[in-house]
């Protein structure tokens, strides 16, 4: 299988089969919290893609060139959190100064995902992931792309959830079911639906 095929498998796995929200159950907080309106869900999704891709790149470098040579793999969680938090802070400052329009649409969501478990999750999974041949560990490019695709998968599910919840606003349902209760039921049904992707053989 060529590299394109490898990428296709990686994308399908990250977006559908091992979706961060519905299959790995990471990042549930924004999934339920920021999915009431389609446009804020879109903003959050874009911010997650952005941060996941950047965090994958930086943490991969930290892991490979700092932690592995010193035999400090057991410190990856604390090192990654430190790195991601600092990175997001830094990026927020840069955007605020250089791209005010982007800051307005992403700015409020950036601090929310500083220590989001989905972002930390993708960084840690990148260190353990192997290609389809079963031997080769992810290289830098693989890690970055995996981060990007994981973010896309997160955004897709977040947008689907927000789209359904926007329509549910107008549904005549018992008052006690409105809001969070129906949101949780919805999340469960969506997770069941995504479970179907597990049968894919690529």
């Amino acid at each position: 299988m060529g590299y394109i095929g490898e990428l296709f498998v990686m994308a399908m796995t990250a977006i559908f089969i091992q979706n961060f929200v519905l299959s790995r159950f990471l990042g549930l907080c924004p999934y339920l919290g920021v999915s009431k309106k389609l446009d804020s869900a879109f903003g959050m999704g874009m911010a997650v893609i952005f941060v996941m891709t950047l965090a994958s790149a930086i943490t991969f470098l930290i892991y490979k060139y700092l932690l592995i040579p010193n035999g400090l793999m057991y410190l990856q969680t604390i090192a990654f959190i430190l790195t991601i938090a600092a990175l997001v802070q830094f990026v927020e400052m840069v955007i605020q100064k250089n791209a005010p329009a982007l800051y307005k649409s992403l700015g409020v969501y950036l601090p929310l995902i500083t220590t989001n478990c989905a972002v930390l999750g993708v960084a840690i999974l990148n260190t353990k992931a192997i290609r389809t041949d079963g031997i080769t560990a992810y290289n830098f490019m693989d890690a970055v792309l995996n981060g990007f695709f994981s973010g896309v998968g997160f955004t897709l599910v977040l947008l689907a959830m927000a789209g359904i919840r926007e329509r549910l606003e107008f549904v005549d349902m018992p008052k006690s079911m409105r809001g969070m209760p129906i949101g949780l039921i919805l999340a469960g049904i969506m997770a069941l639906a995504f479970y179907g992707f597990m049968g894919f053989k690529i």
Partner: peptide
């Protein structure tokens, strides 16, 4: 290493907060 990482990130953020104020 962890302390150094923290120190470097802290310094970068401190400088950035001035540069990108």
């Amino acid at each position: 290493i962890i302390g150094g990482l923290g120190l470097i990130f802290g310094l970068i953020l401190a400088i950035a907060s001035k540069v990108f104020e």
